[in-house]
Design a protein around this nucleic acid. Structure first.
Ligand SMILES: [Zn+2]
Ligand SMILES: [Zn+2]
Ligand SMILES: [Zn+2]
Ligand SMILES: [Zn+2]
Lengths: 597, 597
DNA sequence: AAAAGAGGTCACGAGGTCAG
DNA sequence: CTGACCTCGTGACCTCTTTT
């Protein structure tokens, strides 16, 4: 091994020299033979979607030919796959990637594949150099970790230890990986420092840089604190998310699946995205890996970001019949062995839903690393991050889509909707007083202002009053308001007669029963297939409402309404509260009018 | 193995190292340290075509390496791209520039790229100093404007307001965006007057000065006889065309829009050029002025063989099939290359314009398409908007594309949704006289001067939106309705103080201005280019709201909310009216909550 | 020389292909 | 449908020419 490493290093130097000489001599020519090794091979990045060997960066993400082709076909043809039988929790690996198209596509989106992230042309040299340097560093780190681990474990020697023999086949990359260079050569060091030095993975950073703007791309490291794990191996987001999931499971457990879900949920969820964005750059080396970065998520449906305009209605045609993996329509028969997978991966199952949302979990608890806001309570809840759907172009703050999951306490309620899976969360944790639930509000937020996020609101909030940029959610205030209001509203009608707790319970129940998610859950639980099937809307997931799409369509529409309101004479004279109130109450109607026009 | 490894390693490493070494060398050698900052960096001008970072002036225009290369390839190889699927209205940004070659090339021409505008050698010191000074002033102004704007918006805009955080990504961003300068600096003014009088930016002036002779640049007014209209403002063709348009209207009126257009064109354009062809060809140099001259039309690309013989066959090879982005063959749908490249460059431009105009029509009638002979008929130009080729590097007015915002009342309304292109529609349909404007231009604009904005690019207003393919504004009718309704709604609140009629007007205006079309303009203006990038959605399509999708997502969601309401205890006890009221006012919030959950 | 851009070069990856 | 392969447009760099 060492020798190998040495070689590596040596090489460079030599070459360098050579280089120079060459330049002196002929500057012009510089015919260096092309490198025998391609950049791809050098970096040897795994596919962020399935972990297979990637063939480069496709649609902004390191991905394999298969995932690239799959994504391409999906967006070009606007295919909508029928919904996942497992609640969209399927893990995606090289082996099972073809078992669930829905999940595969979601994963693609999750890791950031998008038409907008397409990069053309060659990789800038600097970046390339940096990438390589970083990759080396990463490998080195991994190595160290491994060694450490090994020592701990003692005997495990993997193949890795001596693999020499095999090596050949494995592209050189392995080499790279394996032998983590302990130290960088002088040149490398220089390079490294000069260029970046951040720890982030080179690759990720490269991508980020390349597409800075793309929301997807930039993911705040903080969010993905631990993503480290991702980087590691080639695991993808997925894994992380799964892991996360597991933890939860263990804790609370299935019981109370739904209910708990609700509660738990609320808290965390959304916290913070607020600051989000910044990240990219920093160095989080650990995260570097891109995989971690979560893209904006889009869950399902047509809204794919990537697709961009493409997603159009057209899709429907295909949608109608969902497509089963082989194009066969039906499905039932097949079902996917998805679950099975669980075991292996273990994680598989669960999460899907979350996955979308939360994907990443973080495997570790890196403690909050980045997350400032995080409540002390601890993340246990895992702050995951989520890509929130709100994407907007204009967003000030970054498109951040990320969301933390709220700390337990609160939770609950707000999760009205769904996410059964979420359930996993520990209910117990919830100490809180119930009501909160309500508050939990929408989306948005909860608690600590600092963490709050707003999401949807933002529309409304847009009016932005405060601004507190720094901290968290600029819109916190608004959110607050909003929440209350909501509560108020609903409450009004009936509270009188029913004790509050019960009322809350009833409402929650009503919500659950009417939300698709719950339906979905029920379905799963009860296995009532049929129900699901009705498929109401064509939407992707059959019965399910495609919130991502909804949001994609909704947000801009709401935004327009807000803009509209702002321009109405006198609107600006209203106090913030009234503005919000007016918007909340009148937006729906305005939207309807506009829609029909 | 070893060898392999070595190679492998060597390669990469080498390159890296090399990098360093190289850089070191260079620096040493040419330590441009001087300012350390190169002129390019100082000016930090964005690519006029796509907004990316430019690498200097190429073909007479500040442009990025990508656009430079694209333009070079196009003219050198006389490539004809297949026509745009969206009506040539695609916006061109860093992110989506590779999605439509036709529009990209048109944009290149529009902003003034021309072989004739090539400049060699270093920039005279004086000019350089001036340029920098102007650039700084410009930046400064922009800053101020921004601040002003922000302050105005004040609280509103929250998030948007502060984007601070994100910023980083965009590097130069701010500078970069540089929106077209609203006002001229003293220097600029001088320059302007001296040169032309149009509003040029410092930079532009530089260019102009640089290439005084360049035919392109100098546009003799005479040459462009009719072009006069063009020349006017700095408007680009577009504007010009519009004006032209106007005149015509006045004359004959909208009807015959197309025809007139043709004619007009032909007169000017063709005519002059018409015989033209030869002339030009004869001497290239002569052509040079071509810009001014009306180009020979090319309308249809090859079709116009007549145009010149020149259009030689050569092109054909490529021409024949238009080229799809990657050389793949395209879809059948369209095949024609719009531009014909006539000879070298020169012709491009010219034709371009026309092509632009006419191209569309052509498309529509594919039949002729190929048929060269049918000139006149084809032309029926639709004036879409197009960048005229006339641009010169020196453009008088900035390459920016300006857009007027439509007059309040009308216009917009019908297009609430969008589909600017729709505009193309025959005016006649439009009863009102005014709106016509609307029609005409797609994207662009409308007239009310007061509001003009420029957009950079968007030529089209709509970027490709996804779905709605259709052409005209389907929603026109509705729009009407909508407007009214809206009014009503909104009106409620404020009517008190303002006379009803006025209020209505104001609200309608508010509506129009906030409908996506205008938003687009605003957005552009405000700079959000990036957004696009953003990835996510940002892009192009974003702006437009896809109501069909919206409805598809919205309806089921609302239905769920209604179901939810029904299950809430007590809801059923409300009278119908109250139920409706409650739902109307609370649904939005509930939806938000559900969405976020 | 130095500066600046036209042109050329070729690593890259989007997309198309078509056995499997 | 999937994905290994292939074609070729793209754009980061580099060389070479022109101008100061
Ligand atoms: Zn893959
Ligand atoms: Zn699945
Ligand atoms: Zn460009
Ligand atoms: Zn186009």
């Amino acid at each position: 091994m060492l020798s190998m490493l040495e070689n590596i290093k040596a090489e460079p130097v030599v070459s360098v020299v050579e280089e120079n000489s060459v330049s002196h001599f002929k500057q012009k020519k510089k015919p260096r033979e092309k490198s025998s090794v391609s950049t791809v091979e050098l970096l040897d990045m795994p596919c962020k979607v399935c972990g297979d060997k990637s063939s480069g960066v496709h649609y902004g993400v390191y991905s394999c030919e298969g995932c690239k082709g799959f994504f391409r076909r999906t967006i070009h043809q606007k295919i909508k796959y029928r919904s996942c039988i497992l609640d969209r929790t399927c893990s995606i690996t090289k082996i099972n990637r073809n078992r669930c198209q829905t999940c595969r596509f979601m994963k693609c989106l999750y890791v950031g594949m998008s038409k907008d992230a397409v990069k053309y042309g060659r990789i800038p040299k600097k970046q390339k150099a940096r990438l390589i340097a970083e990759r080396l560093a990463e490998i080195r780190r991994e190595k160290i970790l491994e060694q450490t681990k090994e020592s701990e474990n003692g005997a495990n020697e993997n193949v890795s230890g001596n693999e020499t023999p095999t090596r050949r086949e494995s592209t050189e990359s392995d080499v790279f990986r394996k032998t983590p260079p302990k130290n960088m050569s002088v040149n490398e060091s220089m390079l490294y420092d000069a260029l970046h030095n951040s720890e982030s993975t080179g690759v990720d950073s490269y991508i980020q840089e390349s597409f800075p703007k793309s929301p997807t791309i930039r993911q705040p490291p903080e969010l993905i604190p631990k993503c480290a794990f991702l980087s590691n191996g080639a695991r993808n987001t997925l894994n992380g998310y799964q892991e996360n999931f597991q933890d939860q499971r263990e804790k609370s457990k299935q019981r109370a699946y739904y209910e708990s879900k609700q509660r738990a949920y609320s808290d965390q969820t959304f916290l913070s995205s607020s600051n989000p964005v910044k990240p990219r750059s920093s160095s989080d080396s650990s995260m570097s890996h891109s995989p971690s970065n979560p893209p904006p998520l889009l869950l399902l449906g047509r809204s794919f970001p990537g697709a961009n305009g493409e997603t159009s209605p057209n899709e429907i045609k295909k949608t109608d019949n969902y497509k089963s993996p082989n194009g066969r329509s039906a499905d039932s028969t097949r079902k996917f062995p998805i679950f099975n997978f669980d075991k292996t991966t273990e994680k598989y199952r669960k999460s899907a839903p979350q996955s979308l949302f939360f994907s990443k979990s973080i495997d570790s608890k890196p403690t909050h690393r980045r997350n400032p806001s995080t409540p002390t309570t601890d993340l246990t809840p895992v702050p995951k991050f989520i890509p929130t759907p709100f994407s907007e172009p204009r967003r000030k703050f970054p498109p951040t889509y990320q969301v933390y999951i709220p700390p337990p306490i609160y939770s609950s309620s707000h999760c009205l909707t769904s996410k059964p899976h979420i359930i996993t969360q520990p209910v117990d944790t919830i100490s809180s007083p119930t009501r909160i639930d309500f508050n939990p509000k929408p989306a948005t937020q909860f608690r600590t202002p600092s963490n709050t996020m707003h999401i949807a609101l933002d529309y409304s909030s847009r009016t932005r009053s405060s601004s507190s940029p720094d901290s968290g959610c600029p819109e916190a205030n608004d959110c607050e308001m909003e929440t209350q209001r909501t509560t108020g509203i609903t409450g009004n009608g009936n509270t009188a007669q029913i004790p509050l707790p019960e009322l809350v319970d009833l409402i929650v129940r009503a919500h659950n029963e009417t939300s698709h998610a719950s339906r979905h859950a029920l379905f799963l639980t009860k296995m009532d297939h049929r129900v699901a099937h009705k498929g109401t809307y064509t939407a992707t997931d059959d019965d399910q409402i495609d919130w991502a799409s909804f949001n994609a369509c909704f947000e801009p529409a709401v935004r327009e309404v807000v803009e509209f309101a702002k321009t109405i004479p006198g609107f600006d004279k209203l106090c913030q509260e009234d503005k919000v109130l007016l918007l909340k109450t009148a937006s729906l109607e305005i939207l309807l009018v506009r829609m029909t026009s």
